[in-house]
Amino acid sequence: MNIIVCIKQVPETTEVRINPETNTLMREGVKSIINPFDMYAIEEGVLIREKVGGKVTVVTMGPPQAEAALREAISLGADEAILLSDRAFAGSDTWATSYTLAAAIRKIKDYQLIICGKQASDGDTAQVGPGIATHLDIPQVIYVKKVEEIKDTTIRVWRMTEDGYEVIEAPFPVLFTVVKEINTPRLPSLKGIMRSKQAKITVWTHKDIEADFAQLGLNGSPTQVAKVFTPAPRGKGQMLSGTTDDIVAGLVNILKEQQ
């Protein structure tokens, strides 16, 4: 099975600073790591390949330094790596990011499974995975916490929900986003690290993925960041107690008073 894992390089700290003038993330001087959720995505890709054969291709869109994330993914067992790097991609929001990744995946062509992390630790939107599936017009299962069975044309997984899980069987090709309950990511191996140092990283620009220029980067990003701020903490709520009738009556009174 050919598996594509989308990974994002993120700043190690959770306290990302925002440039107050441009309202964009300030990444200077912060160590970069693979988005923690994507570690589970890589591990699941490698586990599935170990079970059924095939190859794992990791893809990232990012600046040239994002190559380090791809090499790390290879040390963890991925077979091939593609870096989408081009000035034209700069300033992408989730729409443009998923458009670009989808274009690259279309170019890779031969794939059955795409795995993304649940969300990125910096952007946190959890939109890119579903966005890719939408652009590619393929099924998606988000918050996958277990792969139960891999068949010839379908795969059966557990999808985490707020109060339990759903069992879903999806046809290939399909996109998953995974949660951290799905596995325990392995440490790199010595030979993996050595291989990763020597591995060839394919770099694609907008020309290589035959993308519509207007949909890329800042131009292709409908998101307008007007202001980034921490919402004021909510005040303490008021608790009503007593029998159900008392509570309902109390609530109606309060609502009336506040009208």
Binding site: R186, S189, L190
Partner: peptide
């Protein structure tokens, strides 16, 4: 073992490092 640390004792020709 998975980290290939036992490979450290062994020459390259026999699967070591």
């Amino acid at each position: 073992a998975d980290a290939d640390l036992f490979a450290i004792f062994v020459p390259l020709e026999y699967g070591g490092t």
